[in-house]
Structures are given as C-alpha cells and as structure tokens.
Amino acid sequence: MQIGPKIDPAQLKFRIGPLVGWLIRITPTCRDIVRLISDDMDHPLPLGTRLKIRVHFLICKWCDRYRRQLLFMRNALRRHPDRLAGAEPPADSPGLSSDARERIKRTLQDRSE
C-alpha cells in the first residue's frame, strides 16, 4: 500500500504512518475492495461496508480509479447501446445470411396476409 506521491514518503511515514497502518488494518484489502465496488453497482451494500470502501479510497488512489473506470464503462455502454453493435462486425458474423433473410421475409409475408 502506498500513498499519493506528492509528499516525501519518508516524512509521511514518520508523520501519519501509524494512522495509515491503522486504516490499512481496518479496511479490506484491494482484492476485496474491487469485489465490493462491483457489488455496489448491483445491490445496496450496508452502510458500514460503504464507509469502509470510502475510507479505503483515502489511502488507495488505485481502487478509487478502478471504481471510476467501471462507472465510465457502464455510462459509455448505457448511453450508446447501439455503438457496440455498430462496431466492426466479426468476420464470422457480418450479418444475416441470405437464407435467413429470405426465410424471415417469407414468414413476415405469410403472417401479414
């Protein structure tokens, strides 16, 4: 676990080392936090757990980034649901086969009569 690089690490260790050490001990590890960040996007977490995540962000900018990046992906997909399908079609499925297209046209014709 490291702290943002702005302050001289040695000095920081001396000044708030005990506090950080204590925070590290009371918050879950990054491995657990990323799981909780994802869970938080799907169902409400207990207040205590949400607080632990917040406290963890104070001492870990990487988990904070992780959360913001997951939300970025979610917003990108939800705002542009069509872009993914409009992207490069995979070589093996460029579109409807001509058989399927004809079948669908015939079925639509039958049903609309």
Partner: peptide
Amino acid sequence: WADQHGDYLFR
C-alpha cells in the same frame, strides 16, 4: 424490415 434492420438486429 429484413433489408433495413436485419443485419443490425442480427449483430
């Protein structure tokens, strides 16, 4: 429809 939207919906 099949010609206009078929490929898109399929993808």
